[in-house]
Every structure is written in C-alpha cells, then in structure tokens.
Measured scan of single mutants.
Amino acid sequence: AQVHVDGVTYDFDNPEEAEKFAREMAKRKGGTVEVKNDQWHVE
C-alpha cells in the first residue's frame, strides 16, 4: 500500500500500517486523508 504525503510516496507491505501512518500524518498536519485507487493521500 502506498501513502502520499506532500509529494513523497511511502511504501508499506501492510495496508493496516499504511492506514495508521496516513491517519497519524494527517493528524500532525491538521489535514485530511483520502483513499484513491487503494492509495492513501494525506492533504
């Protein structure tokens, strides 16, 4: 699973880890999390 944050792509073998990371980053940035094509996007 991939997580996109500020133009940087992070690869995770485990989708749950990807989701956890995406939500944590969004919380830190005060942003939102979107899922597109099985990829997490932190805005």
Rank of each mutant, 00 (worst) to 15 (best):
E19Q: 06
Q2H: 08
E34M: 15
P15S: 12
E24Y: 08
K36G: 05
K27W: 11
W40H: 05
V33S: 05
D38R: 09
A1R: 13
E34V: 15
G7M: 03
E19T: 02
N37W: 06
H41T: 12
A22Y: 03
D13S: 11
A18D: 00
R23S: 07
A18W: 01
E34I: 15
A18Y: 02
F12M: 04
K20L: 11
A1L: 13
A1G: 08
V33A: 10
V3A: 03
W40P: 04
T9N: 04
D13R: 08
G31Q: 06
N37K: 07
H41I: 13
E24N: 05
V42W: 03
W40I: 07
E17D: 12
G31E: 06
V5S: 06
E34P: 02
V3G: 00
V33I: 09
Y10N: 00
A26Q: 07
D13P: 11
V3K: 00
N14M: 05
E17K: 06
A18L: 01
E17H: 06
K29F: 15
A26Y: 02
N37F: 08
A26S: 05
Q2V: 11
V35I: 13
K27D: 14
T9P: 04
H41S: 07
W40Q: 04
G30K: 06
F21H: 02
K20A: 13
A18N: 00
R28G: 08
K29A: 09
G31K: 02
F21I: 01
K20R: 12
A18P: 00
A18K: 00
N14T: 13
M25A: 09
E24L: 08
D6E: 07
Q39E: 10
F12D: 00
K36E: 08
W40V: 05
V42K: 04
D6I: 02
V35F: 15
M25R: 03
E19K: 05
F12L: 03
A1F: 15
T9R: 12
E19F: 05
E43A: 13
K27Y: 13
N14R: 07
N14S: 13
G31R: 01
Q2K: 13
E19I: 06
D6H: 07
A1K: 12
A26E: 05
R28T: 12
G30L: 03
G31F: 08
D38M: 11
F12A: 00
V33L: 10
V35T: 07
E43Y: 15
H41K: 06
D11N: 14
R28I: 15
G30R: 05
D11H: 14
V8T: 09
K29N: 13
E24I: 05
G7H: 04
E16Q: 12
E16K: 10
D11F: 15
F21W: 09
E16V: 12
F12H: 00
A18T: 00
E19D: 07
H4Q: 08
G7E: 03
D6F: 11
D38H: 13
Y10T: 01
F12S: 00
K27R: 11
A26T: 02
K27T: 11
V35A: 06
Q39T: 11
T9E: 04
Q2A: 07
K27G: 10
N37I: 07
K27F: 13
R28H: 13
G7V: 01
E16S: 11
E43Q: 14
V42F: 05
D6Q: 06
V35Q: 12
T32Q: 08
E34W: 15
G30E: 08
E16G: 08
K29D: 08
A22W: 02
F12K: 00
G30S: 04
M25P: 01
D38A: 10
A22R: 04
E24W: 10
E43G: 10
T32V: 11
E34R: 14
F12P: 00
V3S: 01
N14V: 07
H41N: 06
H4R: 08
K29Q: 12
K27A: 14
T32H: 12
V35K: 14
A18F: 01
E24T: 04
D6S: 07
K29H: 14
V42M: 03
H41V: 13
P15M: 11
K29R: 10
G30Y: 05
N14G: 07
D13G: 07
V35M: 14
Q39K: 09
K36M: 09
A18G: 02
R23P: 00
K27P: 01
H4K: 08
N14Q: 07
K36F: 11
V3Q: 01
V8H: 10
V35G: 09
D38I: 04
V33Y: 07
V35E: 06
A1P: 12
F21N: 01
V8N: 07
T9W: 12
Q39G: 15
E16M: 11
E24P: 00
K29L: 15
T9M: 09
A1H: 14
F12N: 00
R23G: 05
V3N: 00
K20V: 09
A22V: 02
P15T: 09
A18I: 00
K20M: 12
K20W: 10
G7R: 02
R28V: 14
D38F: 11
E19A: 07
E34F: 15
V3H: 01
K27H: 13
E24G: 02
V35P: 02
W40Y: 12
N37S: 06
V5D: 03
Q39F: 05
E43T: 15
K36H: 12
E16F: 11
N37T: 05
H4D: 05
P15L: 08
V35S: 08
E19N: 02
E17G: 03
D13F: 07
E19Y: 07
D13H: 08
V8G: 04
Y10G: 01
R23Q: 10
M25N: 04
E24S: 05
M25Q: 11
K36V: 13
T9K: 08
H4A: 05
K29W: 15
W40R: 02
K36Q: 10
M25D: 05
V5G: 01
Q2S: 11
T32Y: 14
Y10W: 08
F21P: 00
E19M: 08
